[in-house]
């Protein structure tokens, strides 16, 4: 079960900040989330949303393990 984290407006949209979800890859995780919540699914694929796996930004699909931490990072506000 990957640990999934949402930040900023994505957290407000989904109504949760952290969950454990079974998925073998980032692509599968996106499908699982989109099937549950179509608005969230669309937002996760939105412009400027980055994905970090184990605190490193990744592009495209990446395999996940049971201990992976996946964070969806909407455009950053700065401090």
């Amino acid at each position: 079960m990957a640990r999934v984290l949402l930040f900023g407006p994505l957290r407000d949209l989904a109504g949760w900040r952290e969950r454990r979800i079974a998925a073998a890859s980032v692509a599968e995780l996106r499908s699982v989330l989109a099937a549950e919540d179509a608005d969230l699914g669309a937002a996760l694929g939105g412009k400027g949303v980055q994905v970090a796996v184990d605190q490193a930004v990744v592009r495209g699909d990446v395999a996940l393990s049971a201990s992976s931490e996946v964070a969806f990072l909407p455009p950053m506000s700065g401090g």
Binding site: G8, P9, P74, M76, S77, G78, G79
Partner: peptide, 27 residues
């Protein structure tokens, strides 16, 4: 850098509710 690119998400709470803020063109 901190004002435009650092990984923070910023929300303003005011009398008219709340809103998420993005960097300005000036930033």
């Amino acid at each position: 850098y901190l004002k435009s690119r650092a990984p923070f998400w910023k929300k303003e709470h005011g009398p008219d509710g709340e809103r998420w803020i993005e960097p300005t063109a000036q930033d």
